[in-house]
Design a protein around this nucleic acid. Sequence first.
DNA 1: TCTGGGGTCCTCAAGCTA
DNA 2: TCTGTAGCTTGAGGACCC
Length: 405
Amino acid sequence: MARVVMHVDLDAFYASVEQLRRPELRGKPVIVGGSGVPGERGVVAAASYEARVFGVRSAMPLARARRLCREGIFVPCDFKAYRDASEQVFQILHGYSPLVEPMSLDEAYLDLTGSQALMGQPEPVAVRLRDEVKRSCGLDLSIGIATCKLVAKVASELRKPRGLVVVNAGGEAAFLRPLPISKLPGCGPSTIRRLEPLGVGTIGDLAALPELLLGELFGQYGRLLHAHARGIDPSPVMPPGDPKSISREVTFDQDVLDPPRLRETALALLQDVGHSLRGHGLAARTVAMKIRYYPFETHSCQATLTYPSDRDDELTQAFTRLLDEHLDQSRPVRLIGAGVSNLEARAVQLSLLESRAAERAALDDRLDALRERYGEQAIFRGTSNRPQQKDFRRDDIDHLAAERK
DNA sequence: TCTGGGGTCCTCAAGCTA
DNA sequence: TCTGTAGCTTGAGGACCC
Ligand SMILES: [Mg+2]
Ligand SMILES: [Mg+2]
């Protein structure tokens, strides 16, 4: 049975939240970005549709946005406000499907497969959802509905703002065909640059290329690209899981050539990382440092601990080593960051459970070594029988058990 | 115009080992 | 016993997303 996947995306989210709580900003070109410090280095996080008329776009340096839009109202980011608004919206989303995959504060996939009897046809469901979010949160959103996540996402982006686009089963490839490859999620500047010389401008052009060629050019991603261009994307809607990495970084308003200050800044960031790590009940095996030197050259390095840790002292020790080894003290630093990855659930208390698990793992290693030396059938765990092994004793037992019935 | 911050996933190379 | 290799881990960098 074909799936019913919905992609929901709030329109100009941060800017809309600002206009919602400050009515004087409504109908005006609002540009959200930075932290509000004059002269800071920052980019546009969101622009209201009134500002977009001037050519202002997300990810554009604020300095450029100011030149493009002299009458723009520049507002610093307030993530707490956006998080609060986002939570309200997600409350509503959960009323429409038990399976919601958040992609960011302003975006989510909902799996509506099999909900027709309960909820009705997908399109009227989408209209109700849109109206409910508007009524109770005051925010506009766009919706795409299709048989897979990829096509649903392209659909939701197509008629923003307040768009609703449904792509019926079987119509995926035809829907994508005329669109420029830039609309395909995952197809960014670098991929576009490499496809251009092949004469690929539209998703249809891309779909026409042999899978082998794409595999040759783009490796694993090439095969995915080939499927995506045809509207094929079997990836399931997944509930949120544990984070895979946690990091904090800052770009200085002016480049810094002062090792003690860099160190203090970085260690404060790392403590924040540690705090978040413990908040998630996780421990990290890898500690990482990121540095961006003047003018814009980024380096990263990482070290793996012998065992996972969530303790500031241990993380700090590893991080300090990275800093001492890798910081080039002669170069001005633009950005510094700290992070952890290779995360695992924190061991419960200190002990039994954990040390037993470790013992078991060590035992497995020894058994594997013996098997390598003496053959697969040589040895098994005390409690386990040889799988599939014809063993007359077992046959007898099985036979008796069957007769006893 | 001068390039944020928080993530995810991929690639490639090198070392290790089953 | 030696050799070859497949697969994992680690580390650096890059593309991409919002
Ligand atoms: Mg979005
Ligand atoms: Mg959005």
